[in-house]
């Protein structure tokens, strides 16, 4: 047990010294990095999914929204229509906004994301969000973002 004290003191001292050195050896621009950490699996971009941006809406247990269904289909003119069916889990009306970014088969974004589209959800009701791509054959994936209406 007596061995614990010097060890903890050593760790504390090292951490304190590291944090208080005053010199940042990484100062200046650095190459951008992709964050890969198994402890936070949701930080990666998962194509063909619906994501909820606001913390208050996204929690599995207490979140205000549930995404019942989502997908995409090709229209007669060759564009792609992405959709999501969203349910209001609260007893209050909600205003949310959705937008979609379309990607090609290599995961390269095609143009800018669509404009935020406002959706009105009655208490405990569902509403459908739909967005059309502007491109045709090159569209392979979608990525729908949902946030609270502003």
């Amino acid at each position: 047990m007596m061995k614990v004290l010097p060890l903890t003191l050593l760790i504390a001292a090292a951490l304190t010294a590291g944090g208080c050195s005053g010199i940042d050896k990484n100062e200046g621009p650095r190459p951008a990095v992709r964050i890969v950490d198994e402890r936070a699996p949701n930080q990666r971009l998962n194509l063909d999914t619906v994501v909820i941006l606001d913390k208050s809406l996204q929690d599995r247990k207490s979140g205000k929204l549930a995404v019942e269904n989502s997908g995409a289909r090709r229209t007669a003119s060759g564009t792609v229509e992405a959709y999501a069916v969203i349910r209001n889990r609260t007893d209050y009306p909600l205003q949310i906004e959705g937008r979609t970014q379309f990607f090609d088969a290599m995961g390269i974004p095609l143009g800018a994301p669509s404009q935020w589209q406002r959706l009105y959800l009655d208490p405990q009701s569902i509403n459908g969000y739909r967005e059309l791509s502007t491109g045709t054959a090159e569209v392979a994936h979608y990525y729908i973002e949902i946030r609270e209406g502003r």
Partner: peptide
């Protein structure tokens, strides 16, 4: 928003695009 919506809708119309 309105121009973005109409633009996408027109491009998905077979007669127009």
């Amino acid at each position: 928003a309105v121009t973005d919506r109409m633009m996408r809708d027109m491009l998905s119309n077979q007669l127009l695009a």
